[in-house]
């Protein structure tokens, strides 16, 4: 495991796995080191942004926390942030194309998506856009060749090894399976994102 400098004000901790990244994220949030402004989990990393911190001291602190996060890794479950059930109407525009690409029936596509146990890996692309890990490998399909110019908020979609719920209207190249009324992003809520890193997610037809 490695801690890399990411400029003068940030350190990038390589965790080797998403689970260790989530545990390190949780440890940092529970006992936030001085001057830390942002803690950004990635797929196998945590970026720690702390413009006013002594980077050397922060680095040794992170090394200690990383060791704890890895030690906890031998136990299975870790520290899930919580579980969110997302009600879905499976009537997406790309159900047929996903069925054709995977050689499955539409019913099987729905059953496999709703049967997958997801965990939020990290957020990006747009505020509240959570990359959900855990999609059944039989549903791994490429993005659309030409992205849609506008995907409505609440669209439930898949691409590659990921699933996601579009938090707001945006262009998008993922394949649409359905939609939900659950708002995963609301600037008036605290926290504004319903699916922070580490959240377990199930889709319920």
């Amino acid at each position: 495991m490695t801690i890399r400098r990411a400029g003068e004000h940030a350190l990038l901790v390589e965790t080797g796995s998403t689970a260790v990244a989530h545990r390190l994220d949780a440890l940092l949030r529970a006992d936030r080191p001085e001057h830390v402004e942002d803690i950004v989990p990635g797929q196998e990393t945590v970026l720690v942004v702390a413009p006013d911190a002594d980077q050397e001291r922060l680095e040794s602190r992170l090394a200690g926390l990383l060791a704890s996060a890895e030690a906890a890794g031998s136990q299975e479950a870790g520290t899930p942030v919580g579980t969110v059930e997302i009600p879905v109407v499976y009537d997406g525009a790309d159900l047929e194309s996903v069925a054709a690409l995977t050689g499955l029936g539409v019913d099987e596509v729905i059953a496999l998506h709703a049967g997958s146990e997801f965990v939020v890996g990290w957020l990006g692309f747009a505020p509240g856009f959570a990359y959900l890990l855990g999609l059944d490998p039989r549903l791994h399909v490429p993005r659309l060749d030409a992205p849609r110019t506008s995907v409505p908020p609440g669209s439930v979609a898949i691409a590659g090894p990921y699933s996601a719920v579009y938090p707001s209207a945006s262009p998008g190249g993922w394949r649409l399976l359905g939609r939900t009324d659950l708002r995963v992003w609301d600037v008036a809520a605290d926290p504004p994102a319903k699916l922070p890193p580490g959240t377990r997610v199930r889709f319920v037809p």
């Binding site: 990411a6 940030a10 942002d38 950004v40 989990p41 970026l47 990290w122 990006g124 990359y131």
Partner: peptide
């Protein structure tokens, strides 16, 4: 995917660097 700091010089496959300013993507 990993977190991106302000000022990051990201290099897409075309090899031409981009310097990230204030509205840069988070990951």
């Amino acid at each position: 995917s990993e977190g991106m700091p302000l000022g990051a010089v990201q290099v897409p496959p075309d090899g031409r660097p981009i310097v990230f300013l204030a509205d840069h993507p988070t990951t």
